[in-house]
Each structure stands twice: as structure tokens, then as C-alpha cells.
Amino acid sequence: MNKSTQPVVIQAKNLDLTFQTNDGPVHALKDVSLDIGKGEFVSFIGPSGCGKTTFLRVMAGLETPTGGEISVNGMTPDEARKSRAYGYVFQAAGLYPWRTIGGNIRLPLEIMGYDKADQAERVKRVLELVELSGFEKKFPWQLSGGMQQRASIARALAFDAEILLMDEPFGALDEIVRDHLNEQLLALWARTKKTIGFVTHSIPEAVYLSTKIVVMSPRPGRISDVIDSPLPPERPLDIRDSPEFIELAHRVRDGLREGHGDAV
């Protein structure tokens, strides 16, 4: 177990979040505590309704917890957002169809008031990072789903946020494209040294990508296991056939089953 010696960038203490719905209160998060160190790649895995997306949205200040404390870079999530601490990648690429790929990546830069020359330079740089150089002038419909999602990652990287929050970014893509993007994402993480929070419901994806795997369970949404990955930082795709990988995947699966109780 490698205890992280890096400074903590995201700290959650006894988080609670209850949604009031027409069917009564829904306990989305209950007593969730977690520290995420700088430069970590943390996956949140669990069945639907376990609160993994809600947790990520709380970090981004898109939801307000009803109890507990959370800090991002030592600030509240709202303050962190205003200081451009994180980039957020959604399940769908959500590119504007009326903007080119370059125009889409420029969107946050325009909103945040970067000057024109800086914008152009940044677009060029992040397109290189996600291997989409040469696609700047294309419209989204001219790109495949995987390429669109890469463009949306580039958009989240454009303004130099230290934290990247990703909500099932590859969930809608097929297995082969997903493998490729996972490999690319690891390379990108190694190059940029970002802290990444990654929601998924794929066990292989979580194990392959993460330095830390957070297993969550539903009703009420809570953390049932936190696993520090023993895998080396260098991870070729065939590491997934190694005994360590398989053992780790087993532990995650056991954690998921336990959290599910007798429902499965």
C-alpha cells in the first residue's frame, strides 16, 4: 500500500446529501469522507444510485451537500470553481454543433476572458494533447463519438485547471474505442500531472486507470471500500492479464457485491 505523501487537494468530511423528491427524501450521500491527494487518479465505481455522480457534482459545486464539509484546494467548491480549479467532462461530449472543434475548445476561454492570441495557442496545445491536431476547423458531426469525447476533454483542459472531474466520459462508447481512450487518458495524465476524479461503472476501466479506487454502494449512497492500487504507473493495455490486475478486479467486485447486500 502506497500511502500518498502528496498534499491533499480534495477533502470530504462526513458529507450528507438528501434530495427532496415527490416520492419522499432520497439519501444520495451518507457520511462520505475521502481525501484525494495531488496528482492522484481516483475512480468512483458502483451501481447506479450509489451517489458516485452526485459526489463528483458536489466536488464541482453543482450540488450543495445538506451536511458535512468539503474543500477543494482549501476552498469551498464554489470558490474553487470561480478560481478555475477544475475542468468537468460530462457523459456526453456536449459540443456545440454550431461551433467548430476549435470554437468549442475556445468556449471556456472566451467566457473566462483570455485574449485572442492566447486562445489560439491553447487550442493548438490541447488539441495536440488529445491527438486531434488538424481537426480544429471541423464541425462536431464530422467526428466520431470517441473523437468528440476527446475534444470535450481538450475543452476541459484548455484553461489549465489542476483538477479534472470526469463523469462516465467513455460510458457511451464501444469497448475498442474505450480501450484506446483509456490508454490515451493515462498518457495524458502522466504528461499533465493533473488530479483526476473519474466516475465509471466498469471494473476493468477503474482498475486499469486508477491509483485509488473508491467503491460505493447505494441506498443510502456511501463509500464501502477505498483501494490503493499496487499497479505501477506505467500500464500497457496487457497489464490487464497480469495476476495483480485480476486480483485487484476481484477485490473491487467483492466490494461491489458486499455493498449490494442480498439484492444480487
Binding site: A60, L62, R81, K82, Y86, G87, Y88, F90, Q91, A92, G94, Y96, W98, L107, P108, E110, I111, M112
Partner: peptide, 27 residues
């Protein structure tokens, strides 16, 4: 909702949301 959330993560103002998202989407 996702589009609106995305703008929120940029701390975009209402006016920016109107000119950059709502208006072109309404064409």
C-alpha cells in the same frame, strides 16, 4: 441540463449563457 451545467462550471454569466448557448441553439 448538461449544457447549462457545463456553463456553470465555467462560472459563465447569464448574458454569456444567452449569447453563446441559448441564442444560437434557438436558431
Amino acid at each position: 441540463a448538461m449544457q447549462m451545467d457545463l456553463l456553470k462550471t465555467y462560472s459563465a454569466s447569464n448574458a454569456q449563457g444567452f449569447w453563446k448557448l441559448r441564442l444560437p441553439a434557438s436558431m
